[in-house]
Amino acid sequence: MAKVLVPLAEGCEEIEAVTIIDLLRRAGIEVTTAGLRPGIVKASRGVQLVPDLTLDVALQDDYDMVVLPGGMPGAAHLKEDARILDLLKKMATAGKYTAAICAAPMVLAEAGVLNGKQATSYPGFLDGLPGVSVSGAPVVQDGKVLTSRGPGTAMDFALALVETLAGADKRQQVEAALVRP
């Protein structure tokens, strides 16, 4: 079974965080949520999220994928955290998956993960970055890097993550149970 780490920073976008965690878990994927610091994480709209672990404890394990929820100032907090940047670099070097939505693809860019890649983000967060081909698509996968636009694309993004880690059949199974139009 695939193992995924979802770091949670103060000010993250709750729709994105919860949708990613929920759909991956529906697919039977092991998801660990980790707060950048101990305690409850207050998301961008005031929803309180309780991480499974602190990031320091979570980093003692290995993961197949790291997924960064966006939202501001959550994505900025991720970008300012050296532990997150180091983890993303290690994941990319090891040929493992990195993923980010909304403003968080800027964190992938800061870690050098988007160099020579096509990616998408919330409008404006990747504009003008050298080495990144910016797309307006809702979800973009370029090799082992997946990116998405924002809260409105969170479900499509999470389903793409399911398909990447567990296959098209599992994605269809999860999506059918959601009764999407």
Rank of each mutant, 00 (worst) to 15 (best):
T120G: 09
A176I: 00
P73T: 02
M106Q: 14
D62T: 15
L88S: 04
A166R: 13
G71Y: 04
G167I: 11
A9P: 00
D22W: 06
V107S: 07
D52F: 06
D52P: 10
F125D: 05
A27L: 05
R83M: 09
S121N: 06
A43N: 02
A168Q: 15
G152S: 11
D169K: 15
A34L: 08
A2D: 10
D81H: 10
A158V: 08
P105C: 14
V41M: 12
L108W: 03
F157W: 04
A99K: 11
I101N: 06
A92V: 02
V134H: 05
A154G: 08
R37C: 03
A34V: 08
V41I: 15
R149V: 09
L126K: 05
G143A: 12
M106N: 03
V139F: 01
I20P: 00
V47P: 13
P38H: 13
R171G: 03
L178S: 04
V134T: 08
M106H: 00
G35D: 04
I40L: 12
A58E: 08
K170T: 15
G150V: 01
M1W: 00
T164S: 14
S133L: 10
M65A: 15
V139A: 02
D64Y: 05
P138V: 12
G152P: 09
V107I: 09
G131A: 11
M65F: 01
D142S: 12
L161N: 08
R149K: 13
C12A: 09
P7H: 11
M106T: 11
P73R: 07
L161G: 04
T54I: 06
Q172N: 14
G152Q: 08
L161Y: 07
G152C: 10
L49Y: 05
P181L: 05
V57P: 00
K79L: 12
P51K: 15
Q172H: 13
G28V: 10
P38W: 13
K96F: 10
D61G: 00
A9S: 08
T19S: 13
T54C: 08
G112F: 06
P7F: 09
T153I: 08
P73D: 01
F125R: 03
D142M: 10
C102G: 05
G28H: 06
K90Y: 00
A99I: 05
V132Y: 05
D52T: 09
T98E: 12
V132D: 09
T98A: 15
A160L: 05
I101H: 07
V47Q: 04
M72K: 11
V134C: 07
V107D: 02
L114D: 07
L36K: 09
I15M: 14
T98P: 00
K90F: 00
A76Q: 13
A168Y: 06
C102D: 12
T120D: 07
P181I: 06
D56A: 14
G124L: 12
A94W: 03
P51Y: 14
A158Y: 04
E110I: 07
L87H: 02
A166Q: 08
P69R: 11
Y122D: 02
G116W: 07
Q141D: 02
A75Q: 08
